[in-house]
Design a protein around this nucleic acid. Sequence first.
DNA 1: TAGTGGTCTAGACCACATA
DNA 2: ATGTGGTCTAGACCACTAT
Lengths: 241, 241
Amino acid sequence: MAQKRVAVPVYYGIATDLRDAIESGELSPGELIPSEAQLCETYGVSRMTVRQGLNLLSEAGYINSVPGRGSFVVHPSYERVLIEVQPTRLPDGSLPDCLMLEIGFHRADSSVAQALDIDEGADVQVIRRVLGANGDPICFDRIFVPPDWDLNEIEEEAAPVAQFVSRLAEHPFLHVKLTIRGREAEPEAAAHLKLPEPPFAIHVEQQILSAEADPVAWAVSVFDPEGYRLKGEFGPVRRRL
Amino acid sequence: MAQKRVAVPVYYGIATDLRDAIESGELSPGELIPSEAQLCETYGVSRMTVRQGLNLLSEAGYINSVPGRGSFVVHPSYERVLIEVQPTRLPDGSLPDCLMLEIGFHRADSSVAQALDIDEGADVQVIRRVLGANGDPICFDRIFVPPDWDLNEIEEEAAPVAQFVSRLAEHPFLHVKLTIRGREAEPEAAAHLKLPEPPFAIHVEQQILSAEADPVAWAVSVFDPEGYRLKGEFGPVRRRL
DNA sequence: TAGTGGTCTAGACCACATA
DNA sequence: ATGTGGTCTAGACCACTAT
Protein backbone atom coordinates (compact mmCIF):
# COMPACT_ATOMS: atom_id res chain seq x y z
CA MET A 1 0.00 0.00 0.00
CA ALA A 2 2.52 2.57 1.15
CA GLN A 3 5.42 1.03 -0.75
CA LYS A 4 7.68 3.36 -2.64
CA ARG A 5 9.10 1.85 -5.74
CA VAL A 6 12.55 3.09 -6.78
CA ALA A 7 13.35 3.33 -3.06
CA VAL A 8 14.26 0.27 -0.99
CA PRO A 9 11.83 -2.63 -1.23
CA VAL A 10 9.46 -3.10 1.67
CA TYR A 11 10.80 -6.57 2.49
CA TYR A 12 14.29 -5.16 2.73
CA GLY A 13 13.12 -2.56 5.21
CA ILE A 14 11.47 -5.27 7.29
CA ALA A 15 14.70 -7.25 7.31
CA THR A 16 16.90 -4.31 8.27
CA ASP A 17 14.47 -3.16 10.97
CA LEU A 18 14.61 -6.59 12.56
CA ARG A 19 18.36 -6.81 12.08
CA ASP A 20 18.80 -3.51 13.89
CA ALA A 21 16.53 -4.67 16.69
CA ILE A 22 18.65 -7.79 17.02
CA GLU A 23 22.00 -6.04 16.87
CA SER A 24 20.92 -3.40 19.34
CA GLY A 25 19.88 -6.06 21.81
CA GLU A 26 16.19 -5.23 21.60
CA LEU A 27 15.75 -8.83 20.53
CA SER A 28 18.19 -11.23 22.14
CA PRO A 29 19.44 -14.61 20.98
CA GLY A 30 16.90 -17.28 21.83
CA GLU A 31 13.95 -14.92 21.73
CA LEU A 32 11.07 -15.16 19.31
CA ILE A 33 10.67 -12.41 16.78
CA PRO A 34 7.12 -11.25 15.98
CA SER A 35 5.12 -13.82 14.02
CA GLU A 36 4.65 -13.41 10.30
CA ALA A 37 1.00 -12.51 10.82
CA GLN A 38 1.97 -9.79 13.28
CA LEU A 39 4.56 -8.39 10.90
CA CYS A 40 1.99 -8.36 8.10
CA GLU A 41 -0.21 -6.18 10.23
CA THR A 42 2.60 -3.96 11.49
CA TYR A 43 3.86 -3.17 8.01
CA GLY A 44 0.52 -3.48 6.25
CA VAL A 45 1.85 -5.92 3.69
CA SER A 46 1.03 -9.41 2.53
CA ARG A 47 2.60 -12.48 4.01
CA MET A 48 4.88 -13.23 1.05
CA THR A 49 6.49 -9.83 1.47
CA VAL A 50 7.14 -10.47 5.12
CA ARG A 51 8.52 -13.89 4.33
CA GLN A 52 10.88 -12.40 1.78
CA GLY A 53 12.28 -10.20 4.51
CA LEU A 54 12.61 -13.06 6.96
CA ASN A 55 14.36 -15.06 4.27
CA LEU A 56 17.06 -12.40 4.09
CA LEU A 57 17.49 -12.48 7.85
CA SER A 58 17.70 -16.22 7.81
CA GLU A 59 20.29 -16.27 5.02
CA ALA A 60 22.36 -13.73 6.85
CA GLY A 61 22.32 -15.92 9.93
CA TYR A 62 20.22 -13.80 12.26
CA ILE A 63 17.19 -16.00 12.73
CA ASN A 64 16.12 -19.60 12.60
CA SER A 65 12.54 -20.50 11.77
CA VAL A 66 10.88 -23.51 13.34
CA PRO A 67 7.59 -24.77 11.92
CA GLY A 68 4.78 -24.56 14.40
CA ARG A 69 6.77 -22.46 16.84
CA GLY A 70 8.07 -19.29 15.27
CA SER A 71 11.31 -17.60 14.30
CA PHE A 72 14.04 -17.37 16.88
CA VAL A 73 16.99 -15.04 17.09
CA VAL A 74 20.03 -17.20 16.61
CA HIS A 75 23.08 -17.30 18.85
CA PRO A 76 25.67 -16.01 16.42
CA SER A 77 28.17 -18.63 15.39
CA TYR A 78 31.81 -17.73 15.19
CA GLU A 79 33.24 -21.09 14.39
CA ARG A 80 33.65 -20.66 10.70
CA VAL A 81 35.38 -17.97 8.79
CA LEU A 82 35.45 -16.91 5.21
CA ILE A 83 38.98 -16.24 4.04
CA GLU A 84 40.70 -15.35 0.84
CA VAL A 85 43.12 -18.11 -0.05
CA GLN A 86 45.02 -16.09 -2.56
CA PRO A 87 44.64 -12.52 -3.68
CA THR A 88 43.41 -12.12 -7.22
CA ARG A 89 43.94 -8.44 -6.76
CA LEU A 90 46.72 -6.91 -4.77
CA PRO A 91 45.99 -4.05 -2.39
CA ASP A 92 46.89 -1.48 -5.04
CA GLY A 93 44.51 -3.09 -7.53
CA SER A 94 47.13 -4.74 -9.70
CA LEU A 95 47.19 -8.41 -10.53
CA PRO A 96 49.80 -10.72 -9.03
CA ASP A 97 52.58 -11.57 -11.41
CA CYS A 98 53.27 -15.16 -12.31
CA LEU A 99 56.47 -16.93 -13.21
CA MET A 100 55.73 -20.28 -14.81
CA LEU A 101 58.52 -22.67 -13.92
CA GLU A 102 57.27 -25.82 -15.53
CA ILE A 103 54.34 -27.50 -17.18
CA GLY A 104 55.14 -31.17 -17.71
CA PHE A 105 54.82 -34.79 -16.77
CA HIS A 106 56.01 -36.44 -13.60
CA ARG A 107 55.46 -39.71 -11.83
CA ALA A 108 53.24 -39.52 -8.78
CA ASP A 109 55.02 -39.91 -5.47
CA SER A 110 53.21 -41.44 -2.54
CA SER A 111 51.56 -38.26 -1.26
CA VAL A 112 50.31 -37.24 -4.69
CA ALA A 113 49.13 -40.78 -5.41
CA GLN A 114 47.17 -40.82 -2.20
CA ALA A 115 45.65 -37.40 -2.76
CA LEU A 116 44.57 -38.23 -6.31
CA ASP A 117 43.65 -41.83 -5.55
CA ILE A 118 45.95 -43.19 -8.23
CA ASP A 119 48.87 -45.65 -8.21
CA GLU A 120 52.26 -44.51 -7.08
CA GLY A 121 54.43 -43.94 -10.11
CA ALA A 122 51.50 -43.18 -12.41
CA ASP A 123 51.74 -40.26 -14.81
CA VAL A 124 50.54 -36.87 -13.66
CA GLN A 125 50.93 -33.42 -15.08
CA VAL A 126 52.53 -30.84 -12.87
CA ILE A 127 52.36 -27.08 -13.02
CA ARG A 128 54.97 -25.27 -10.96
CA ARG A 129 54.80 -21.53 -10.61
CA VAL A 130 55.80 -18.61 -8.45
CA LEU A 131 53.29 -15.87 -7.76
CA GLY A 132 54.51 -12.48 -6.69
CA ALA A 133 53.45 -9.01 -5.81
CA ASN A 134 55.37 -6.16 -7.41
CA GLY A 135 58.32 -8.38 -8.09
CA ASP A 136 58.47 -9.97 -4.64
CA PRO A 137 57.71 -13.68 -4.66
CA ILE A 138 55.01 -14.58 -2.14
CA CYS A 139 53.75 -17.98 -3.21
CA PHE A 140 55.29 -21.07 -4.72
CA ASP A 141 52.93 -23.81 -5.72
CA ARG A 142 52.67 -27.11 -7.50
CA ILE A 143 49.41 -28.23 -9.06
CA PHE A 144 48.92 -31.88 -10.00
CA VAL A 145 46.31 -32.69 -12.62
CA PRO A 146 45.42 -35.80 -14.67
CA PRO A 147 47.77 -36.66 -17.56
CA ASP A 148 45.05 -36.34 -20.21
CA TRP A 149 44.20 -32.71 -19.54
CA ASP A 150 45.14 -30.19 -22.17
CA LEU A 151 47.28 -27.51 -20.56
CA ASN A 152 47.80 -25.45 -23.69
CA GLU A 153 44.67 -23.45 -23.15
CA ILE A 154 45.65 -21.82 -19.89
CA GLU A 155 44.27 -18.30 -19.80
CA GLU A 156 44.89 -16.86 -16.40
CA GLU A 157 48.25 -18.05 -15.23
CA ALA A 158 48.01 -16.25 -11.91
CA ALA A 159 44.56 -17.51 -10.94
CA PRO A 160 44.03 -19.10 -7.53
CA VAL A 161 44.63 -22.84 -7.62
CA ALA A 162 41.02 -23.95 -7.58
CA GLN A 163 40.01 -21.32 -10.12
CA PHE A 164 42.88 -22.44 -12.29
CA VAL A 165 41.77 -26.06 -12.14
CA SER A 166 38.11 -25.12 -12.56
CA ARG A 167 38.85 -23.42 -15.88
CA LEU A 168 40.66 -26.50 -17.15
CA ALA A 169 38.09 -29.02 -15.96
CA GLU A 170 35.42 -30.28 -18.27
CA HIS A 171 32.80 -29.53 -15.65
CA PRO A 172 33.87 -26.42 -13.79
CA PHE A 173 31.73 -26.95 -10.70
CA LEU A 174 34.12 -28.53 -8.29
CA HIS A 175 34.38 -29.10 -4.61
CA VAL A 176 37.51 -28.29 -2.67
CA LYS A 177 38.94 -29.63 0.54
CA LEU A 178 41.61 -27.43 1.96
CA THR A 179 44.10 -27.61 4.77
CA ILE A 180 46.28 -24.84 6.08
CA ARG A 181 49.45 -25.89 7.86
CA GLY A 182 52.49 -24.17 9.16
CA ARG A 183 55.74 -26.04 8.61
CA GLU A 184 59.25 -25.82 7.29
CA ALA A 185 59.40 -25.22 3.56
CA GLU A 186 61.39 -27.60 1.38
CA PRO A 187 64.58 -26.14 -0.12
CA GLU A 188 63.10 -25.47 -3.55
CA ALA A 189 60.21 -23.47 -2.13
CA ALA A 190 62.50 -21.68 0.31
CA ALA A 191 64.80 -20.68 -2.53
CA HIS A 192 62.04 -19.34 -4.73
CA LEU A 193 60.51 -17.36 -1.90
CA LYS A 194 63.91 -16.24 -0.56
CA LEU A 195 62.92 -17.35 2.91
CA PRO A 196 65.32 -16.76 5.80
CA GLU A 197 66.58 -19.64 7.93
CA PRO A 198 64.72 -21.51 9.25
CA PRO A 199 62.50 -21.43 6.16
CA PHE A 200 59.14 -21.61 7.82
CA ALA A 201 56.05 -21.02 5.70
CA ILE A 202 52.31 -21.40 5.52
CA HIS A 203 51.30 -24.38 3.41
CA VAL A 204 47.87 -24.51 1.80
CA GLU A 205 46.99 -27.95 0.53
CA GLN A 206 44.02 -28.27 -1.75
CA GLN A 207 42.34 -31.43 -2.86
CA ILE A 208 39.93 -30.69 -5.65
CA LEU A 209 37.00 -33.04 -6.17
CA SER A 210 34.52 -33.51 -8.98
CA ALA A 211 30.78 -33.29 -8.41
CA GLU A 212 30.92 -37.07 -7.95
CA ALA A 213 33.50 -36.60 -5.18
CA ASP A 214 36.37 -38.10 -7.17
CA PRO A 215 39.66 -36.30 -6.69
CA VAL A 216 40.67 -34.53 -9.89
CA ALA A 217 43.55 -32.37 -8.76
CA TRP A 218 45.87 -31.72 -5.88
CA ALA A 219 47.97 -28.71 -5.06
CA VAL A 220 50.32 -27.45 -2.43
CA SER A 221 50.93 -23.73 -2.15
CA VAL A 222 53.74 -22.40 -0.02
CA PHE A 223 53.33 -18.82 1.19
CA ASP A 224 55.96 -16.50 2.51
CA PRO A 225 54.54 -15.66 5.93
CA GLU A 226 56.04 -12.19 5.86
CA GLY A 227 54.87 -11.34 2.40
CA TYR A 228 51.41 -12.72 2.61
CA ARG A 229 48.72 -13.12 5.21
CA LEU A 230 45.48 -14.94 4.97
CA LYS A 231 42.74 -12.55 5.86
CA GLY A 232 39.15 -13.36 6.54
CA GLU A 233 35.78 -12.32 7.79
CA PHE A 234 33.19 -14.32 9.57
CA GLY A 235 30.39 -15.75 7.53
CA PRO A 236 27.69 -18.36 7.75
CA VAL A 237 27.92 -21.88 6.50
CA ARG A 238 27.38 -22.32 2.82
CA ARG A 239 23.93 -23.31 1.91
CA ARG A 240 24.48 -26.55 0.11
CA LEU A 241 21.85 -27.62 -2.31
CA MET B 1 -1.41 -29.38 -9.24
CA ALA B 2 0.75 -32.50 -9.35
CA GLN B 3 2.74 -31.61 -6.26
CA LYS B 4 3.19 -34.27 -3.63
CA ARG B 5 3.23 -32.89 -0.15
CA VAL B 6 5.29 -34.76 2.40
CA ALA B 7 7.82 -35.44 -0.37
CA VAL B 8 10.33 -32.83 -1.50
CA PRO B 9 8.85 -29.44 -2.30
CA VAL B 10 8.38 -28.62 -5.95
CA TYR B 11 10.69 -25.61 -5.80
CA TYR B 12 13.45 -27.76 -4.38
CA GLY B 13 13.08 -30.17 -7.27
CA ILE B 14 13.32 -27.30 -9.74
CA ALA B 15 16.50 -26.10 -8.05
CA THR B 16 18.17 -29.50 -7.98
CA ASP B 17 17.19 -30.23 -11.59
CA LEU B 18 18.86 -27.02 -12.68
CA ARG B 19 21.84 -27.62 -10.42
CA ASP B 20 22.36 -31.04 -11.98
CA ALA B 21 22.08 -29.55 -15.45
CA ILE B 22 24.73 -27.00 -14.50
CA GLU B 23 27.11 -29.44 -12.85
CA SER B 24 26.82 -31.92 -15.69
CA GLY B 25 27.76 -29.25 -18.17
CA GLU B 26 24.36 -29.20 -19.85
CA LEU B 27 24.26 -25.55 -18.91
CA SER B 28 27.65 -23.84 -18.96
CA PRO B 29 28.86 -20.76 -17.14
CA GLY B 30 27.75 -17.65 -18.96
CA GLU B 31 24.69 -19.31 -20.47
CA LEU B 32 21.12 -18.28 -19.78
CA ILE B 33 18.92 -20.72 -17.93
CA PRO B 34 15.28 -21.00 -19.04
CA SER B 35 13.19 -17.96 -18.18
CA GLU B 36 10.88 -18.03 -15.20
CA ALA B 37 7.86 -18.12 -17.48
CA GLN B 38 9.27 -21.13 -19.32
CA LEU B 39 9.98 -22.93 -16.05
CA CYS B 40 6.42 -22.22 -14.89
CA GLU B 41 5.13 -23.96 -17.95
CA THR B 42 7.62 -26.83 -17.81
CA TYR B 43 6.80 -27.68 -14.23
CA GLY B 44 3.19 -26.53 -14.29
CA VAL B 45 3.60 -24.30 -11.26
CA SER B 46 3.13 -20.65 -10.45
CA ARG B 47 5.84 -18.11 -10.77
CA MET B 48 6.48 -17.72 -7.05
CA THR B 49 7.29 -21.41 -6.84
CA VAL B 50 9.79 -21.15 -9.64
CA ARG B 51 11.31 -18.08 -8.07
CA GLN B 52 11.71 -19.91 -4.79
CA GLY B 53 13.75 -22.53 -6.59
CA LEU B 54 15.85 -19.95 -8.41
CA ASN B 55 16.45 -18.23 -5.09
CA LEU B 56 18.04 -21.41 -3.76
CA LEU B 57 20.27 -21.66 -6.82
CA SER B 58 21.28 -18.06 -6.45
CA GLU B 59 22.08 -18.43 -2.75
CA ALA B 60 24.16 -21.48 -3.50
CA GLY B 61 26.14 -19.52 -6.03
CA TYR B 62 25.06 -21.25 -9.23
CA ILE B 63 23.21 -18.45 -10.99
CA ASN B 64 23.06 -14.71 -11.17
CA SER B 65 19.84 -12.99 -12.16
CA VAL B 66 19.87 -9.78 -14.15
CA PRO B 67 16.67 -7.75 -14.46
CA GLY B 68 15.46 -7.48 -18.01
CA ARG B 69 17.90 -10.07 -19.29
CA GLY B 70 17.53 -13.36 -17.49
CA SER B 71 19.39 -15.68 -15.14
CA PHE B 72 22.92 -16.65 -16.06
CA VAL B 73 24.99 -19.59 -14.93
CA VAL B 74 27.79 -18.14 -12.88
CA HIS B 75 31.48 -18.80 -13.32
CA PRO B 76 32.21 -20.48 -9.99
CA SER B 77 34.41 -18.42 -7.73
CA TYR B 78 37.16 -20.09 -5.82
CA GLU B 79 38.73 -17.10 -4.20
CA ARG B 80 37.16 -17.38 -0.83
CA VAL B 81 37.07 -20.27 1.54
CA LEU B 82 35.11 -21.12 4.62
CA ILE B 83 37.34 -22.49 7.34
CA GLU B 84 36.97 -23.53 10.92
CA VAL B 85 39.16 -21.33 13.04
CA GLN B 86 39.07 -23.58 16.05
CA PRO B 87 37.39 -26.90 16.58
CA THR B 88 34.52 -26.78 19.02
CA ARG B 89 34.37 -30.52 18.68
CA LEU B 90 37.34 -32.74 18.26
CA PRO B 91 37.29 -35.52 15.68
CA ASP B 92 36.13 -38.04 18.27
CA GLY B 93 33.26 -35.79 19.31
CA SER B 94 34.74 -34.64 22.60
CA LEU B 95 35.20 -31.01 23.56
CA PRO B 96 38.65 -29.45 23.72
CA ASP B 97 39.97 -29.10 27.23
CA CYS B 98 40.93 -25.70 28.53
CA LEU B 99 43.56 -24.64 31.00
CA MET B 100 42.90 -21.11 32.22
CA LEU B 101 46.23 -19.48 32.95
CA GLU B 102 45.09 -16.03 33.91
CA ILE B 103 42.21 -13.62 33.98
CA GLY B 104 43.44 -10.23 35.05
CA PHE B 105 44.45 -6.68 34.27
CA HIS B 106 47.40 -5.56 32.21
CA ARG B 107 48.56 -2.37 30.61
CA ALA B 108 48.17 -2.24 26.85
CA ASP B 109 51.38 -2.47 24.89
CA SER B 110 51.66 -0.75 21.53
CA SER B 111 50.19 -3.57 19.43
CA VAL B 112 47.20 -4.04 21.73
CA ALA B 113 46.66 -0.30 21.97
CA GLN B 114 46.62 -0.03 18.22
CA ALA B 115 44.29 -2.98 17.75
CA LEU B 116 41.82 -1.69 20.34
CA ASP B 117 42.24 1.96 19.43
CA ILE B 118 43.16 2.94 22.97
CA ASP B 119 46.16 4.66 24.54
CA GLU B 120 49.32 2.73 25.17
CA GLY B 121 49.50 1.86 28.85
CA ALA B 122 45.72 1.94 29.34
CA ASP B 123 44.09 -0.81 31.38
CA VAL B 124 42.88 -3.90 29.58
CA GLN B 125 41.69 -7.24 30.83
CA VAL B 126 43.55 -10.25 29.55
CA ILE B 127 42.51 -13.87 29.38
CA ARG B 128 45.30 -16.32 28.79
CA ARG B 129 44.49 -19.95 28.19
CA VAL B 130 45.75 -23.16 26.64
CA LEU B 131 43.37 -25.32 24.64
CA GLY B 132 44.15 -28.94 24.15
CA ALA B 133 42.94 -32.17 22.65
CA ASN B 134 43.10 -35.25 24.81
CA GLY B 135 45.74 -33.69 27.01
CA ASP B 136 47.93 -32.42 24.18
CA PRO B 137 48.11 -28.63 24.02
CA ILE B 138 47.32 -27.32 20.56
CA CYS B 139 46.48 -23.66 21.05
CA PHE B 140 47.71 -20.90 23.31
CA ASP B 141 45.87 -17.63 23.16
CA ARG B 142 45.50 -14.25 24.75
CA ILE B 143 42.25 -12.34 24.57
CA PHE B 144 42.21 -8.62 25.34
CA VAL B 145 38.89 -7.07 26.36
CA PRO B 146 37.85 -3.72 27.87
CA PRO B 147 38.57 -3.22 31.59
CA ASP B 148 34.91 -2.77 32.51
CA TRP B 149 33.71 -6.15 31.31
CA ASP B 150 32.59 -8.63 33.91
CA LEU B 151 34.60 -11.81 33.41
CA ASN B 152 33.03 -13.74 36.27
CA GLU B 153 30.22 -15.03 34.15
CA ILE B 154 32.28 -17.03 31.70
CA GLU B 155 30.38 -20.14 30.75
CA GLU B 156 32.27 -21.91 28.01
CA GLU B 157 35.94 -21.56 28.73
CA ALA B 158 36.97 -23.48 25.64
CA ALA B 159 34.84 -21.54 23.17
CA PRO B 160 36.45 -20.10 20.03
CA VAL B 161 37.74 -16.59 20.63
CA ALA B 162 34.98 -14.70 18.87
CA GLN B 163 32.30 -16.87 20.41
CA PHE B 164 33.88 -16.29 23.79
CA VAL B 165 33.83 -12.54 23.32
CA SER B 166 30.35 -12.62 21.81
CA ARG B 167 28.95 -14.22 24.95
CA LEU B 168 30.52 -11.55 27.12
CA ALA B 169 29.52 -8.60 24.98
CA GLU B 170 26.43 -6.63 25.70
CA HIS B 171 25.36 -6.95 22.10
CA PRO B 172 26.49 -10.33 20.85
CA PHE B 173 26.35 -9.56 17.13
CA LEU B 174 29.89 -8.68 16.33
CA HIS B 175 32.06 -8.38 13.29
CA VAL B 176 35.45 -10.00 13.12
CA LYS B 177 38.56 -9.21 11.13
CA LEU B 178 40.99 -12.05 11.09
CA THR B 179 44.52 -12.60 9.93
CA ILE B 180 46.38 -15.89 9.70
CA ARG B 181 50.16 -15.68 9.80
CA GLY B 182 52.98 -18.13 10.09
CA ARG B 183 55.84 -17.01 12.29
CA GLU B 184 58.05 -17.91 15.17
CA ALA B 185 56.21 -18.29 18.44
CA GLU B 186 57.32 -16.28 21.44
CA PRO B 187 58.93 -18.32 24.23
CA GLU B 188 55.83 -18.45 26.42
CA ALA B 189 53.66 -19.85 23.65
CA ALA B 190 56.39 -22.24 22.58
CA ALA B 191 56.68 -23.54 26.11
CA HIS B 192 52.97 -24.10 26.57
CA LEU B 193 52.66 -25.86 23.23
CA LYS B 194 55.91 -27.78 23.71
CA LEU B 195 57.09 -26.70 20.27
CA PRO B 196 60.40 -27.99 18.92
CA GLU B 197 63.14 -25.61 17.90
CA PRO B 198 62.66 -23.46 15.92
CA PRO B 199 59.25 -22.84 17.49
CA PHE B 200 57.30 -22.02 14.40
CA ALA B 201 53.52 -21.77 14.66
CA ILE B 202 50.38 -20.55 12.99
CA HIS B 203 49.15 -17.30 14.48
CA VAL B 204 45.51 -16.31 14.18
CA GLU B 205 44.91 -12.68 15.04
CA GLN B 206 41.36 -11.55 15.55
CA GLN B 207 40.13 -8.02 15.86
CA ILE B 208 36.55 -8.03 17.04
CA LEU B 209 34.38 -5.06 16.17
CA SER B 210 31.00 -3.89 17.41
CA ALA B 211 28.10 -3.28 15.05
CA GLU B 212 29.30 0.34 14.95
CA ALA B 213 32.72 -0.89 13.81
CA ASP B 214 34.47 0.08 17.03
CA PRO B 215 37.09 -2.45 18.14
CA VAL B 216 35.94 -4.19 21.31
CA ALA B 217 38.41 -7.02 21.63
CA TRP B 218 41.66 -8.33 20.24
CA ALA B 219 43.13 -11.79 20.41
CA VAL B 220 46.13 -13.71 19.23
CA SER B 221 45.92 -17.49 19.06
CA VAL B 222 49.05 -19.56 18.54
CA PHE B 223 48.50 -23.02 17.09
CA ASP B 224 50.84 -25.96 17.11
CA PRO B 225 51.17 -26.67 13.38
CA GLU B 226 51.62 -30.37 14.00
CA GLY B 227 48.71 -30.72 16.35
CA TYR B 228 46.24 -28.59 14.51
CA ARG B 229 45.40 -27.76 10.95
CA LEU B 230 42.97 -25.24 9.67
CA LYS B 231 40.58 -27.01 7.37
CA GLY B 232 38.11 -25.47 5.05
CA GLU B 233 35.68 -25.83 2.23
CA PHE B 234 34.83 -23.43 -0.50
CA GLY B 235 31.76 -21.33 -0.09
CA PRO B 236 30.18 -18.19 -1.44
CA VAL B 237 30.58 -14.75 -0.07
CA ARG B 238 28.41 -13.98 2.90
CA ARG B 239 25.27 -12.18 2.08
CA ARG B 240 25.55 -9.06 4.14
CA LEU B 241 22.38 -7.28 4.99
C1' DT C 1 7.22 -3.50 -28.43
C1' DA C 2 7.94 -7.80 -26.28
C1' DG C 3 10.23 -10.31 -22.90
C1' DT C 4 12.74 -10.44 -18.56
C1' DG C 5 13.28 -10.45 -13.64
C1' DG C 6 11.80 -7.57 -9.12
C1' DT C 7 8.19 -6.68 -6.20
C1' DC C 8 3.71 -7.41 -4.19
C1' DT C 9 -1.24 -9.01 -3.26
C1' DA C 10 -4.83 -11.79 -1.06
C1' DG C 11 -5.96 -15.52 -0.61
C1' DA C 12 -5.34 -21.13 0.24
C1' DC C 13 -4.16 -25.84 2.40
C1' DC C 14 -0.81 -28.33 5.05
C1' DA C 15 2.06 -30.27 9.04
C1' DC C 16 3.45 -29.23 13.28
C1' DA C 17 3.68 -27.40 18.16
C1' DT C 18 1.39 -25.72 22.18
C1' DA C 19 -2.07 -25.46 25.34
C1' DA D 1 -8.53 -25.63 18.99
C1' DT D 2 -5.47 -22.18 17.90
C1' DG D 3 -1.41 -20.31 16.12
C1' DT D 4 2.88 -21.05 13.72
C1' DG D 5 5.76 -21.44 9.66
C1' DG D 6 6.07 -24.17 4.83
C1' DT D 7 4.24 -24.37 0.47
C1' DC D 8 1.63 -22.81 -3.42
C1' DT D 9 -1.74 -20.20 -6.56
C1' DA D 10 -3.08 -16.80 -10.03
C1' DG D 11 -2.96 -12.93 -10.74
C1' DA D 12 -0.75 -7.66 -10.86
C1' DC D 13 2.35 -3.51 -11.90
C1' DC D 14 7.01 -1.99 -12.37
C1' DA D 15 11.80 -1.05 -14.37
C1' DC D 16 14.86 -2.71 -17.30
C1' DT D 17 16.88 -4.84 -21.72
C1' DA D 18 16.87 -6.06 -26.31
C1' DT D 19 15.02 -5.70 -30.96
